[in-house]
């Protein structure tokens, strides 16, 4: 997690926007665009998830790491990562609806990786 935080700090660099592969996040307004089309109805958890992916592109994020990011101290309360899976699935669906290519790749059973192409 510390690694991710460092990456995030470096990527934000005073800016309120994160951009990657045509996707852009306005951190202050909490809004997401894909090539100027708004990605609608993202839940807070899905927004967090997308932030995590975009701040660490090309990195394999294990389900455990994702759960810790999403649920913080409460991650301990879950016995499995079905919930992570559900959130990722929903996020993917909503991105697809705005015409965004499938950037979120499944890395075997291990986790997910956010990358273009």
């Amino acid at each position: 997690m510390r690694v991710l935080a460092v990456i995030r700090r470096r990527n934000f660099r005073g800016s309120n926007r994160i951009e990657y592969g045509g996707l852009s996040i306005d951190i202050v307004r909490e809004s997401v665009f894909f090539q100027d089309n708004p990605v609608k109805q993202l839940s807070p958890k899905e927004f967090d998830l997308l932030m995590l992916f975009m701040s660490a592109p090309k990195r394999v994020l294990t389900k455990g790491a994702i759960a810790e990011h999403l649920f913080g101290d409460h991650a301990d309360l879950f016995d499995n990562f079905d919930l992570v899976y559900a959130h990722v699935k929903n996020l993917k669906k909503k991105l697809k609806q705005t015409g965004c290519p499938d950037y979120i790749k499944t890395v075997y059973g291990m986790g997910y990786k956010f990358e273009t192409s």
């Binding site: 690694v3 990195r59 294990t62 455990g64 790491a65 075997y108 059973g109 291990m110």
Partner: peptide, 26 residues
Amino acid sequence: KTQLDLLAQDENLTEQQSEIITRIEK
């Protein structure tokens, strides 16, 4: 934990190795 995270970044991991990593992580 951190070493596992690093290992997971390896591009050349086979599916079997990924499964092992997942199990260790769990």
